[in-house]
Write a protein that binds this DNA or RNA. Structure first.
Lengths: 168, 168
DNA sequence: AATGTTACGTCAGCCTTGTTGACATTCCAA
DNA sequence: TTGGAATGTCAACAAGGCTGACGTAACATT
């Protein structure tokens, strides 16, 4: 145990750092993530896709003409794992892989019109829930939400996130 | 698109509800959840367990003498999936399943001393990161963080969460 | 020009963790 | 006594991670 009772430190009240408070945050993360993925999951199932496909579509859409290596770093999976997913999306005509201009070893990834359509459908489903949550909690809560999440990321991932956040 | 520009509504600034802001929250959730699970995952690997084992240990620890059905509802998986995990934990002497007193069909689940030890190790690893994130973001941000997460949950899960949160 | 490195794809095999379906057992309750 | 609930278990399957190995093309360096 690290904080089992009221603990004034540097003249501040650190009650929010008790193990109890941390536990609530941990359980909230677990349950909230289920909600976070629930709506896209339902849509994906209709198309015979999984979460991995959603993630690929999302980040290809976010970073037009991104390379495979780039996507690997963002998603944090192996190339074999990503390749399985990409192969399906390319075969189904949702993603296009064009040979790189400057470096012909690279593949620049794009969403086709069909791909963009599915991505938009998934994103909108997820946004509906987020929008409701944001609205219910209010702007100040949203700011705190984002701050804590950002502080929770691994350092290298936070860099990736911030680049994306700030519009590349 | 639902919010593409400044949108005063009811005399309030709802800038935080733009698709851009929602997207940042969505990506933050994705990346933060990776960090959230990273530390326990490393420990679990040493013992040959996975995330499913962590979740079982956590909620058995939280709700002493809980039943299997109860745990199923909390975890949101099938009994077959949970049973596989429980079987392993029981075989390894981390969990004990005692026949229910009032209803002998039920199994009351407990952590053994060994089970408690691993649970504590996993929880502490996760708390270290949460504590750092909470500290970095501050008490007001933490309150907002929890508010948004709670609003993001499915209704039935939110009830489960709130019961646990308020100490059963 | 030769050699090394990088980017990517692919095959094979393995693991965890989720699913469905079917069936047996036990035991409470009507 | 009988129906249904709670539990366990077997089998089969799928998604999506992983490692290791190998091949090819293209770029980079010497």
């Amino acid at each position: 145990m690290v904080q089992t009772g009221p603990n004034p430190s540097s003249g501040e009240n650190l009650l929010f750092l008790t193990d109890e408070q941390l536990r609530k945050g941990i359980e909230a993360m677990f349950f909230a993530y289920r909600g976070f993925t629930a709506d896209p999951d339902r849509i994906l199932e209709e198309y015979g896709y999984g979460r991995a496909h959603h993630r690929a579509l999302h980040f290809i859409n976010r970073s037009h003409a991104t390379t495979v290596n780039n996507l690997l770093a963002t998603l944090g999976v192996t190339k074999q794992s990503l390749n399985r997913v990409l192969r399906g999306l390319i075969a189904d005509g949702l993603v296009e892989a064009r040979v790189g201009r400057t470096d012909r070893r690279e593949r620049n990834l794009f969403l086709t019109d069909t791909g963009q359509e599915l991505e938009r459908q998934l994103a909108e489903a997820q946004r509906v829930r987020m929008r409701a949550a944001y609205r219910a909690a209010g702007p100040q809560a949203v700011a705190g939400f984002r701050q804590v999440l950002e502080a929770m990321m691994d350092d290298d991932i936070r860099n990736t996130y911030q680049s994306l956040r700030d519009g590349r």
